[in-house]
Write a protein that binds this DNA or RNA. Sequence first.
DNA 1: TGTTAATGATACCATATTAGTATCATTTGT
DNA 2: ACAAATGATACTAATATGGTATCATTAACA
Lengths: 132, 132
Amino acid sequence: MKLITRNTDYALRALCYMSKQEGLVTVGQLVQKLDVPRPFMRKILQQLNKDKILESYKGQGGGFKLKISPKKIYMVEIMRVFQGPVGLNGCFLKKDVCPNKGKCVLRKKIRSIEEGMLEQLREITVASLVQH
Amino acid sequence: MKLITRNTDYALRALCYMSKQEGLVTVGQLVQKLDVPRPFMRKILQQLNKDKILESYKGQGGGFKLKISPKKIYMVEIMRVFQGPVGLNGCFLKKDVCPNKGKCVLRKKIRSIEEGMLEQLREITVASLVQH
DNA sequence: TGTTAATGATACCATATTAGTATCATTTGT
DNA sequence: ACAAATGATACTAATATGGTATCATTAACA
Ligand code: FES
Ligand code: FES
């Protein structure tokens, strides 16, 4: 079971890197630094741009930079962008099939696990990842 | 993100049902009760048999029954059978790429989330799912 | 002792998701 | 004009998931 996919992973790498750079960062730089396939990296940055996490500048001398402070870039948000809403997605059993009385125990337990997970996840930001 | 797959889900349904039955249960019965595709259910039960969670009896009048007490059938174990080892599978970033100093923050955080999850998961048994 | 109703084993197929490529268009500094 | 960057979008490949199909084996029972 994967918590994060490569999309998310690469995106976080890129964001961490960019949070330590002053000016613009190009795809080329990131590809070099992070050893990620170039077109894939592009796609990811373009997506982050669409989602207003980065801003981009075209043309020669262009590149990307963070649009918002690393403190405000939440990992859950990045996950949401690349993996859809974060959660544990219930189960396939419906209440009528489930343990007697229509009260679904498993569902509740999954919710609870999910809550615990989210609680911890929500505290992770790019800033929190970068500080040694 | 899915915590459990259909395999696991159907398996749990079947186990819950069987924990309430005295004698042998056939695939036919389960298919009827739980509305699951027959060959898929078979495959699942055969797997549970291989993993010593069920025992099986061939021939006319045959079927399956629990091999161990519902109290000792842990959900994590069922997940492991059908989904592989339960965990959050780290990330793809390696320490050298990761946040400075080689200390990988994200990795630790994921571990921590995983621990919380496992702690709760490990308490769930078939028995705990069945008791209203 | 042959038929039938069950599981065992295994190979195959379909669909969805993830991961990644390829291409062409647009912008901008020199 | 050209080169160096991103924007948009369509396509392909690999993997995981969710099943089917088939034949072999076993055992009750008429
Ligand atoms: S509704 Fe999901 S286990 Fe019951
Ligand atoms: S080793 Fe996984 S995020 Fe660093």
